[in-house]
Computed example of a mutant assay.
Amino acid sequence: MRKTSAALLMLLAVIAGCSSVRPRATTIKQNKPPSDPEVAQIVAKINENATKIKSLQCNHVDINGSSEGQVYTLNAKMAYQDDHRFRLLGRFAGHSELDLGSNENEIWFWVARMKPPTVFVCNREDLSRVKLAIPFQPDWIMDILGVSPIDREENTLEQSQASQFTLLAEESTPGGSTVIRRTYIDRDSGRISGYELFDDNYNRIVRAHVVEYHDDTSLGIYVPRKVKLEWPEVDTKLTVSLRSRQIEINKITSDFAANVFRRSEYDNTKVVDLANPTASGRGIGMSGYRGPASAENLTARTPVQLRGAIEPAPTDPVVR
C-alpha cells in the first residue's frame, strides 16, 4: 500500500514551499562566461524561453517516490507567477495534506500531519536568519521548472563534450552557506537535462534529472513535464509529473493571482514565525524539527480546514 511519509512531506515543504529568495551567486576561481560560441548560443535560447514564461499552472501534478524505505504518492495542484509567487497544494486519499506558498511578502507551508497543527511563516526579509533543516534553498525549484534564466556572468563552462556540456556556479544561500551548482545541458535538444547541488566540500545534496518536456507549440514555449529528484543523504527520491493537458502557460489572471498567491486561514492551527519561533511561543522553527519517521507514528490530527485552492475563486476550496 502506498502511503504518505510525514518526514517526506516536511522535506517537500522545505524544497518547494518557500520559493521566494534566490541564492546570491558568487565567483568561482577563474570563473569566466562561456566562451564556446555554440554554448553561448544555446544558453541564449534557453534564456529566451525562460523569459517568455510569465506564469505556469497545472491542476494535476503527480508526486511519487520513496523515503527511508517507504513509498508514497501525492496528488497536487501547482501555480507559479513572476515576482516570487508560488503555490503547491497536495492531497492524499481525498484529504488535504500540504500547502506550500510564497508571494512578494512572505513564504509559508502547512502539513496536515504536523502535531500540533501549525502553519510556518517567514517574511522574505527575514530569510537570512532562518536555518532550514535541509540546506536546499527553495527558488531552485524554479530553475528546475525552467522559469529562471541562466546568468552567464555567474557560470563557468566546466566541461564541453559532443553530447552535452556543464556549467558550474558557486552560490551563497540567504543563511550564508556556500553551495555549488552544476547545470547539465544537452547539445542536441538545446535544453537543460539536469542539475546537481553540492556543499562546499563537494558532497552532493540533491540531483535533478529532467525526464521529459512539454511543448506549447502555440506559444513556442517549453517547460519540464517530468522531473526526477534524489537526496542521497536522506535516502529520498521523488518524481514530479505534470499532466500535459493540464499545463497552462501565461494564463493566470490578476483576479486568480490575488486569490491563489496568499496565505490561507486555518482553523485550530498555530502560526509560527520561522525567523522568531521563540517569541511566538507556539512551536519550533525548522532548525529544531526532524519529523516522525513514519506514518504509523503519527497521532490523530486535529480537523483542519484549508481555505483557498488553485481555482479561479474560493468557492471550491481544498477541504480536509
Score class of each variant (00 low, 15 high):
105 N>T: 04
16 A>W: 12
223 V>N: 01
61 V>M: 15
20 S>C: 11
190 G>W: 03
228 K>Y: 05
285 G>Q: 14
42 I>A: 03
35 S>H: 11
20 S>E: 10
128 S>L: 02
285 G>H: 11
308 G>W: 06
24 R>M: 13
64 N>I: 05
165 F>K: 02
23 P>Y: 02
211 V>M: 10
264 S>A: 11
299 T>G: 11
20 S>V: 11
77 K>T: 04
215 D>C: 05
175 G>I: 13
213 Y>P: 00
289 Y>M: 15
272 V>A: 05
138 P>H: 12
302 T>F: 08
206 V>T: 08
319 V>S: 08
258 A>K: 02
12 L>Y: 15
4 T>L: 15
161 Q>N: 12
276 N>M: 00
40 A>R: 15
168 L>F: 10
180 I>H: 03
64 N>L: 04
275 A>I: 12
145 L>V: 01
57 Q>W: 02
265 E>A: 05
22 R>D: 00
320 R>H: 04
90 G>D: 10
195 Y>G: 04
272 V>Y: 04
178 T>V: 10
181 R>E: 10
67 S>W: 03
226 K>R: 12
268 N>E: 06
185 I>C: 00
301 R>I: 05
37 P>R: 08
87 R>A: 11
25 A>E: 13
277 P>G: 13
118 T>N: 09
308 G>E: 04
175 G>Q: 11
177 S>V: 12
239 T>H: 06
68 E>N: 04
5 S>A: 10
94 G>K: 01
257 A>M: 06
24 R>Q: 15
196 E>C: 06
162 A>G: 11
272 V>G: 02
302 T>K: 11
302 T>L: 08
305 Q>D: 09
63 I>F: 07
170 E>Y: 06
127 L>T: 13
74 L>G: 13
308 G>L: 05
282 R>I: 06
195 Y>P: 07
28 I>W: 10
42 I>H: 01
227 V>R: 13
264 S>F: 05
282 R>N: 07
271 V>F: 13
192 I>L: 00
186 D>M: 05
203 N>P: 03
270 K>C: 01
298 L>H: 02
124 R>E: 13
293 A>E: 07
207 R>M: 09
278 T>C: 12
267 D>L: 05
79 A>R: 08
5 S>P: 12
139 D>L: 05
216 D>C: 02
2 R>H: 15
252 I>D: 07
313 A>M: 06
143 D>C: 03
198 F>Y: 15
117 P>S: 11
279 A>I: 01
210 V>A: 09
225 R>S: 14
150 I>N: 01
96 S>G: 09
9 L>Y: 15
173 T>R: 11
301 R>P: 02
178 T>A: 08
192 I>M: 00
228 K>C: 06
202 Y>D: 10
165 F>N: 06
4 T>V: 15
120 F>H: 08
216 D>Q: 00
3 K>Q: 14
251 K>F: 01
315 T>R: 10
90 G>N: 07
224 P>L: 09
211 V>Q: 11
52 K>Y: 01
139 D>S: 02
119 V>L: 04
21 V>Y: 00
140 W>L: 08
235 D>Y: 10
208 A>W: 09
82 D>Q: 14
51 T>W: 01
314 P>I: 14
